[in-house]
């Protein structure tokens, strides 16, 4: 079976700390770190074009070049261009979801927001891995 991918636009240290945790949830999932918003769009477009969309996309608000919101909006635009189903998006960000963010989530559809607490990287990674486990169950209809 082909390995499935989760694109993660987060700090490299969080991605590396979350990798073994996610492998324990599902050994067939690859966490693909994308350094900034533009790289996220490159990776996403390649996967969509190959007919192998990622299971999830995790975004930070403060990604370089294209921020989290811009990335999410671009992802939806690219999905429509390829007539692909919308991929689940998780915003993992420092700020809590305000009314503007809630409006964005409603516009995007299949998108959730999780506040990243000011805690050590391994704790942030654990929180992310738990959220991914919950979302993967929903995505796979379990």
């Amino acid at each position: 079976m082909a390995r499935e991918r989760i694109l993660v636009g987060q700090d490299e240290a969080i991605v590396e700390a979350a990798r073994p945790l996610v492998a324990r949830i599902d050994a067939e999932i690859d966490l693909v770190a994308v350094g900034d918003g533009a790289r996220c769009i490159v990776a996403f477009t390649k996967l969509i074009r190959a007919g192998k969309p990622p299971l999830l996309v995790v975004l930070d608000d403060t990604l370089a070049r294209i921020d989290g919101e811009g990335c999410a909006r671009s992802i939806r635009a690219i999905e429509r261009a390829f007539e692909a189903e919308p991929v689940a998006i998780l915003f993992y960000a420092d700020e809590a979801a305000d009314e503007t963010r809630k409006g964005l989530l409603a516009t995007l559809g299949r998108a959730v927001h999780l506040q990243r607490r000011a805690e050590p990287t391994d704790q942030q990674a654990l929180r992310l891995a738990k959220a991914l486990a919950r979302l993967l169950k929903q995505v796979r209809g379990q």
Partner: peptide, 16 residues
């Protein structure tokens, strides 16, 4: 999506 971000997204799509 402002013009700057749209341009970066456009370049990303071209690269992909």
């Amino acid at each position: 999506l402002d013009g700057q971000q749209a341009a970066f997204a456009m370049r990303a799509v071209e690269t992909a």
